[in-house]
Amino acid sequence: MSMPFTSEGALGRIVRGVPSIVILVIFLAPLAIVVIGSLSPRGTAPPLTVDLVPEGASLSNYSDLFERPSFRRQALNSLGVAAVAVPVGTLVASWAGFAIARLPRRASMFLLGLTVVAAAVPVTALFVGRLVLFRIAGVTDTPLPLIAPALIGVSPLLVLLFAWSYASIPRETYDLAREVGLGPLATWWRVAMPLRIGVAAVGAAVAFLLTWGNVLDPLLFVYDERWYTLPLGMTSLAALPPTDQGLVLAAAVLATAPVLLTAFVVQRFVADRTR
């Protein structure tokens, strides 16, 4: 679909593209600066100018990080938690969203209300309550509290996303499925999911980035160094002096890369399938 505005040829296109380019620069510049800063080795005096390529640029910070057993351990923990929480969370959210889309009005409204309430309760209200709960269950200091959010679909917003997308499938399609004898689970698996696979991919990606970046839950529920995840490990880097900022930035790049990669992959995946 093209815009119903007259274009003035190439010049017009360039002029109209300027805002997008400005936006790209504003939002991506910090990323570029972080990557450049991460190449500055430890112990070098902090630069007083913004160089495009800093003095003594090297990948030493990255090798430093990979050599630290604590860093590797934390990365592995983060991956492990994500490997369980993302599939389970996406599944839970997808099922709940489907139920909201398909249940009759009153039941659907109830579930919807539950989801909205879950999304609106302040995080601080849940800190202490969950701490007590996990303590009673004896699961503090294990990875279990980090995986637990999968049971609310990682975020109630994901449930809303799935509900909205499944509700947008025409009634006739669902009626057809019913006529053919498919129960709700089978309808979800063989009709709704394939029709809205893009949303599922986005949902899984969001579940991943929420799980990967979660620092509050490990901070409050995990005390043993062996179970630290990457974001928690990174908080200790905040105390580094300006001469070691390169290390902090390298850790930031490594912690962000999986998320950006996922976003990029999903974005291509979705773009190919819509319109």
Binding site: V92, A96, F98, A99, T115, A118, L126, L133, L151, I152
Partner: peptide, 17 residues
């Protein structure tokens, strides 16, 4: 069937929220 599908989420919200 639909309620069963929503059950894990309802359980999660009850216990975790």
């Amino acid at each position: 069937g639909l309620w069963l599908m929503a059950a894990p989420f309802v359980l999660g919200v009850t216990v975790l929220v």
